[in-house]
Amino acid sequence: MTADAATMLELDRIDTYRGPAQILRGVSLGVREGEAVCLVGRNGAGKTTTIDSIMGLLPVRSGRIVFRGRDVTRLAAHQRARQGIGYAPEDAGIFPDLTVAENFQISHWLSRAAGDRGVAGPRELEERIFALFPEVRAFTGRRGLHLSGGQKKMVAIARALALSPAVLLLDEPFEGLAPVVVSRLIEAVTRIKAMGVSVLIAESNLMNAMRVADRLYAIDRGEIIFEGAPRSALGNVEVMKTIRG
């Protein structure tokens, strides 16, 4: 994808290592404004490493990450979050000893401290969260430790939204969930997109990716092997073979 005015996030030939092992090899991808992009691949292909690299949780050895026209490659994770990159990890990352309300409050306090992105007030924020996930209202006083898998994923996405992000990174948001919960989350992602938030989803299930993505990248062994419309991925035998193993 070539960069243009509407590109929110762009990765330009990034190489990332975990310890001595090179995981990403010249990965380039882009996410446009209000677009849902899926990064599909098998387990170990480099999806989580890509998301972690964008978030600043893993250092990029070479290449550039550009967010809203600004090079953020050398920024710390907390600075990227304050710039407007939201993140919900594979394990949801809910703080176990904090209540759901406290989990939301952290994002909100920090987003207000970050200042200039037209951040919502507490009431507007609550409305935004509960409009997306009305069921969360019932367990805001519950500690993270006592949430089910689906509840954790909902709270993680809602918490990331509380930072008023421009781009939302979702790492395996549908993994391990019942089909009805997956449908619920896909519906939520569609609504998040409608709010004008760009979404990058790391997903190993191609069928789930097809349901939500405007565009799709396939990754294998740390390299992007396909970029295009979801339907065209289905017609590409080599891509299908690689993704499905």
């Binding site: 710390a76 994770a77 990352g93 904090l98 952290i106 920090l110």
Partner: peptide
């Protein structure tokens, strides 16, 4: 408490 429970996630939340 958030930073003590999950330092990476805390950083990712700003």
């Amino acid at each position: 408490r958030a930073a003590s429970q999950d330092m990476r996630m805390a950083a990712a939340l700003g």
